[in-house]
Simulated scan of single mutants.
Amino acid sequence: MKGPLGHIADLQHGVKTKRVSSYDRTGGNRDCITIPAGETAELASIDGAGIIKHIWMTLSTKDAFIRRNAIIRMYWDGEESPSVQSPLGDFFGQGWGEEYNFSSLPLAAAPMKGKALNCYFPMPFGRGARITLENDSEHELRSLYFYIDYESHPSIPATMGRFHAWWNRELTGVQPPEGETEWGVIAPQGANKTDAHNYLFADIEGKGHFVGINYYVDSPGPMWYGEGDDMWMIDGEGWPGSLHGTGTEDFFNSSWCPNELYSHPYFGYARIPDRLGWMGRTHCYRFFLEDPVYFEKSLRASIEHGHDNNLALDMSTVAYWYQAEPHKPFPPVAPKASRANMPEITVRDVHRWRHEWRKSMGGAATLWGNERKPDTP
């Protein structure tokens, strides 16, 4: 597919620019639709061949968690299994049901305060396109405003990859015998020569190319969460794979355990915690628009949750790619209760940890906090 400006000078033949939107069909000013609680609305049903070029939407509801409770799905060429399936906010670049500004080349959450959701990924189709939004909430989605801008074409070849996006989430567990540690703080760390226990963010069958990821991590402790290596197993190959990384921040084109906001068209940190160390929620993103990862038969892409998968983390991702159909069907979206955020770690929790540490150290009145038992590293 052509780059962002590759089509500007080319005169098109038989191509028409069209839009599906929520405009008021009566000519009035209520330019939105309403989706009752528990129902799914069809936002677009487009016949023929074309390419969706831009999606914009904003919404209003009493449900403060609607960005995780609303599920967007997209279907190409009459397929029954969606090629895109994700909570609404996660897809557009907002994690944990939150609203915050996010800026990248293909996706953005724009002012007012991140309420305007935008997507510029081109989405080709040859025999129709369908987009739905499920309101998996107890509240009515009172007003949904949207544009779906597209081009109609005389034909689109089957060899033009179809756009896909998949949301996954996992509460990772501590795997190795040394316990939950990083940088060898608790015990010497082991070696990881497999991707079996990694967090999986892409599990694809077919021919295609991978173009991006939004990565949302909620860390319950203050340690750096990002010593995990990214690992890419292409076309069924074994470990270490064709692409093997050196750390989470390296994968996201940054360095040295960053904890600051940064916005680049292709990569950055849109959300960071403001607590002790790296405790709390971090949103990293990277888009492979100049350097896609190609595969002929399959792609298994994963990342360690801490070196040797030794950290308990709440991890969510949306992966974006193009591939030839048919695609491997996605698992059902987790039930609403399972999409809820993990409880926030508070100052009180940290103080309770300190209290237990004091007891383990004998409870002396002047314990400061950095003391160690003689047999502790």
Rank of each mutant, 00 (worst) to 15 (best):
Q189I: 11
H264D: 14
Q175R: 15
G241P: 00
D235R: 07
G226H: 01
S219D: 12
G173P: 01
D218T: 13
E178H: 15
D229Y: 01
S254D: 05
W256P: 00
F267S: 11
W232I: 02
E180G: 05
C257D: 05
D229K: 02
S219A: 15
F201W: 14
G184K: 06
N198L: 06
W183P: 00
S242V: 03
P220C: 11
G221L: 12
L200Y: 09
M231C: 13
G268W: 00
Q175W: 14
P177T: 11
V185I: 15
H209N: 14
D229N: 10
G268F: 00
G173I: 11
Y266E: 11
D229M: 02
P258T: 03
P176E: 10
H209Y: 14
D230K: 04
G226V: 06
Q189L: 12
G247K: 00
Y225H: 12
G236A: 06
W224N: 10
G208I: 03
P177I: 05
C257L: 05
G236D: 01
S254K: 02
G173A: 13
G179Q: 09
F201S: 08
L261F: 14
D195V: 13
E227T: 07
N192I: 00
H264C: 10
T194A: 09
L200S: 02
E178D: 10
P188S: 08
W224H: 11
P258C: 03
G212V: 05
D218L: 03
V217K: 05
E260M: 12
G190H: 07
